[in-house]
Amino acid sequence: MSSHSKDHDHGHDHTAFQKDITEPKEDWEFLEIAIRELLIEKNVLSAREIQDEIEAWEKKNPEKGAEIIARSWVDDDFKNRLLSDGNKAVAELGFTVESLKLVALENTYEIHHMVVCTLCSCYPRTLLGVPPLWYKSREYRSRAVREPRAVLREFGTAIPESVEIRVVDSTADCRYLVIPKRPANTEKMSEGELVKLITRDSMIGTAEALDQHGKRS
């Protein structure tokens, strides 16, 4: 019986988490339990708040970013506002990226942008959710700035030699959102249909958007 199941008195559905519940094994897992219990005992945090925060993050996922990109594909004026002031433009769609500068970068037939955080794991979490493990890995952080084309090839993303690759390094105060190229033959698609072509990786720049059939190009 895990300790987690004991405090299930708040009557909501936890099924999405069940598969993750395991007994602590590592020192740092015991440390997490100890810190949490002490903070709750000392009324620094409440169990409810921690749970609410976890659930709030569950709701943050790459679809938010995809909505922004889809709008920029169908509305040039919006795209220009997004490129000139990311924070202001995403606020129009109801998204706030607090106390961080948001910079949108447009991928074209001349330039392909790719985002990394060489020092840690800075990522536009409000718009894309929690970063994938590889984004935080030593390998991606080390190599993205040195051999981006090789990294892109590993991701199955073939960018022609004629296209300039520009790698941008995030900081604690500045986050990047890549606007992938709008795929060909999507002129008749609705904004809602376009959203489905915009993947997390296409907004990090390690992939392109899916093609008009929703397949990797």
Partner: peptide, 13 residues
Amino acid sequence: SDLGGLPAGSIDR
């Protein structure tokens, strides 16, 4: 933490 540009292996995706 300054890993940018260092040699490293393949990326586990």
